[in-house]
Amino acid sequence: MPYSVVGIGTSWGGLAAMRKLLSDLPADFSLPVVVVQHRGKDSDQLLTELLQDATDLTVCEVEDKDPLMPGRVHVAPANYHILIEAGHLSLTIEEPVRFSRPSIDVMLSSAADTYGKGAIGVVLTGANEDGARGLADIVKLGGRALVQDPRTAEIPIMPDAAVKAVPSAEVLPLEALAPRLVALSHEREKAGARRAV
């Protein structure tokens, strides 16, 4: 099964979790990664810098219509929703969804709509239920759902809600998520190689 994009959502406790996950990804990770981390509407580039410090992958705060790049970490800017389109990213300032802008649900649902079973959604630690619906959309359209084991999450509310909404999600401790993403990205390459034959 070929995968095209990884969408990761997190909130409270997300900085440490994201840094750990990204630091575990190899420099040649081949999928684009789109990150929605809840934060204050006026927050600046600091998040991007802190994530960049943790990884060999290139981390960028998204500008409108940025192309999705393999192995690039695209971080949603504060106070915008981010939508995954075919090969690029769009921003919108529509109303917050369940008090959040950026909204994890909006990002993950757009990944599902655009890439169907080529989408991988990941929900990490957080103190609200954002992400659960988007993850359900991904699975409904044939994509893959990973959730941080709530017992290893700084705040388990968000992963708990995701598991409840998506009982078929793979629940993994934080340190197992990156290796799993790498394995899934290789599945994509194998499938690609088969197609090329």
């Binding site: 070929p2 081949s30 999705l68 790049m69 079973k117």
Partner: peptide
């Protein structure tokens, strides 16, 4: 650093089978 959509064999085009 190539845009995803520009790489034909990566499966970047939306998969259109499951919906």
């Amino acid at each position: 650093a190539v845009p995803v959509a520009a790489v034909p064999s990566t499966g970047a085009e939306p998969d259109r089978q499951s919906f």
